[in-house]
């Protein structure tokens, strides 16, 4: 393959190690993991979209799963850490998505021109629209003060498109609880947004 700048080859820390540090409440691990995942998710998103042409709508759950597989394949992540990983990946994906949406907004207002860009544009009735995404993103900062676990559920379900089974496993609760949490999150978010 012809290489091109941007292929960052800095040795990456072990994802599993980072997850362990996280469990030990090491805040700096969050930032490291974020940087690692952020770049990766963006890259995967780009290449996926580039490969499929521009008519494709990209299911975000594909992104986190692909990132997961990639880290497993290079030996940086334990298979056993899957749920834990998905939870953090979902949180990172929220930033990726929001940044894309904001960037697009900036471009429409005549900001910087980036050659290839990603967007969360809606094809009729599929997926969420830009405004909704930004609104939900901001409302989540309020929700974080009310019930942090709900934020995780929303990130996993809405931003990362994960299934209830996966979310339940990641949070260590039952699927029933996830369903109720999701219901509660939607109600609260709708309320926050309509206030």
């Amino acid at each position: 393959m012809l290489r091109f700048e941007g292929a960052n080859k800095v040795a990456m820390p072990q994802v599993t190690t980072l997850l362990q540090r996280l469990r030990g409440n090491d805040r700096s691990a969050i930032d490291e993991l974020f940087t690692l995942l952020y770049d990766d998710l963006r890259r995967i998103a780009r290449s996926r979209l580039a490969a499929n042409g521009r008519q494709t709508l990209l299911d975000t759950s594909l992104l986190v799963h692909e990132a997961y597989l990639k880290f497993v394949n290079v030996g940086q992540l334990n298979l056993n850490d899957r749920e834990h990983f998905l939870a953090y990946a979902a949180s990172t994906l929220r930033s990726v998505v929001v940044d894309f949406v904001r960037k697009r907004g900036a471009e429409q207002r005549g900001g910087d021109v980036d050659h290839v860009t990603l967007n969360t544009e809606v094809a009729q009735s599929v997926g969420a629209c830009d405004d909704e995404i930004l609104a939900v993103h901001e409302a989540l900062t309020v929700l974080a003060q009310i019930d942090p676990r709900l934020v995780k559920v929303v990130e996993m379900r809405y931003f990362a498109g994960l299934s209830e089974v996966e979310i339940a496993a990641a949070l260590g609760v039952s699927e029933r609880t996830v369903r109720r949490d999701w219901e509660r999150s939607r109600l609260l978010l709708a309320d926050i947004l309509s206030t």
Binding site: T120, V136, Y158
Partner: peptide, 11 residues
Amino acid sequence: FLAQPVALQQI
């Protein structure tokens, strides 16, 4: 409301 998860699309 929020029934569909986010999907990315190249524009």
